[in-house]
Amino acid sequence: MKPAAFEYFRASNAVQAVGLLQQYREAKILAGGQSLVPLMNFRLSRPSALVDISGITELARIVPTAHGLRLGALVRHQDLVDNPMVRETIPVLAEAAAHIGHWAVRNRGTVGGSLAHADPAAELPAVMVALGADIVVMDAEGERKIPARAFFVGFYTTTLGSDALIVAIEMPRPREPVGFYEVVRRHGDFALAGALVEAGESTGAVTWFGVTPAPVRMAWTALAEDEGLRRQQWERLTRDLDFAGDEAFRRPLAVTVAERAYQRARGGH
């Protein structure tokens, strides 16, 4: 399990990184390496070159904005867990980040890397979709924003071009309480199913992950007070989900995680 040979470049700023991506068409970005390097060790991914952006310190910052937070692409998962600003402004982000892998992985893995990798069972893509984050990407044309809800399009597939780099994520402060729940076989595993539920007074939305090829957000109006009726509503919402041929297992899980995330949003446990 040794990776194939590659050329290695260390970028000192985002513009340079984008230039290298253009120059080496089969290059990949190396940030924390926690998703990419295992694939390379299995030789399932064999980029001809790696563009290492981990030294670009300005991409590692968390800064407050008028509406919430701007996370540099290199912010580590453990920073999301520990950072007081994150914990206060978007507590569900810190909560979700704590469920990513294990400590050693969170110390290296980056927000941008997780979003670019787009594992359907990963937490951060779902958080971004639920909260309506914008993903700031840079390519030869310059910087632009892609709404998270238009970014994840399928299994490990995004609308990020192969010559583009995620530089930041702009996250709004949630207006409503958001509950997070996921089902994992072991602590730190990728989720079998997970959900974030934004629970407003009468309206709200659920974002599922792990059950479909990419996170899916669905809004509702008027949710029942009675748990039994509410489960039927979740059930109806799941009818439009693409369970990728594993419906018997995933649909009941989807209902359960939605209900439990909802209860957490409403202050339960």
Partner: peptide, 13 residues
């Protein structure tokens, strides 16, 4: 001071 996987880090990086 923070734990990391040395199998997932290229020494050059």
């Amino acid at each position: 001071g923070e734990p990391a996987r040395s199998c997932l880090i290229f020494a050059v990086a």
